Simulated assay, not measured.
Amino acid sequence: MEHPIDRAAKVVGSQKALADRLGVTKAAVGQWKEEGRRVPAEHCPEIELLTGGVVRCEVLRPDVKWGVLRSSPCDDLDASVVHHIGAAGDRRTGGHPCASE
């Protein structure tokens, strides 16, 4: 089975190109494939973006709860609650980032 880093490198062009885009060395990228090593979580979203979703964060780091980060904090809020709190930028209420102006 192909390692997700190898798949990402193919999509981006090479392991060196992937390293350059991530601002790390080619050696660092190579080490992520070694037994017991893993991609630092902070690089996973960028790899997913660089590969157009071909290599997803969940494959690179299944130990991270990416679903929490993917879902909007506003998805579960009732619109009336957001309206009551106030629109974003409303100085009187402090606003709510999920409210529209």
Rank of each mutant, 00 (worst) to 15 (best):
P62W: 09
G36Q: 01
T93N: 09
P40F: 10
A87G: 14
V29I: 05
W66S: 04
V59Q: 14
V55D: 03
V82R: 00
D90E: 07
V39S: 06
V82I: 15
R37M: 00
A19S: 05
A28T: 02
G23E: 12
I5L: 13
P4I: 14
G89H: 04
L60W: 14
E46R: 15
H43K: 13
G89I: 07
A17Y: 03
Q31M: 09
A28C: 03
C44F: 11
H3V: 02
P40I: 11
L22W: 07
V64H: 07
K65V: 08
L49K: 08
V68C: 05
I5M: 10
D75E: 09
V55A: 12
V39H: 00
R92N: 07
Q31F: 08
E2Q: 14
T51G: 09
E48G: 11
V11Q: 05
C98G: 13
V11G: 02
E58A: 14
L22F: 12
S80Q: 08
A99H: 04
E34V: 11
V12Y: 06
A79S: 05
V81C: 00
S72R: 02
G89W: 00
V64M: 14
D63Q: 03
S14W: 02
L69I: 06
K10N: 11
G94F: 03
D6M: 06
L69G: 00
V12Q: 00
H84A: 15
T25R: 05
M1K: 10
R61M: 15
R92P: 03
C57K: 03
P62L: 14
A9R: 06
G95M: 15
V54F: 12
E46F: 11
A17V: 11
V24M: 01
G23D: 13
L18F: 09
I5E: 04
A41D: 12
A99M: 08
G30Q: 02
C44A: 15
G95L: 15
K16P: 01
A19H: 05
G67E: 00
A19E: 08
T25L: 06
S71V: 05
E42L: 10
P4K: 14
G86H: 13
C98Q: 06
I5A: 10
V24N: 02
H84L: 12
V82F: 04
H43V: 12
D63Y: 03
S71R: 07
V29C: 01
H83W: 01
K65Y: 04
W32T: 01
C98K: 08
S72W: 04
I85W: 05
A41Q: 10
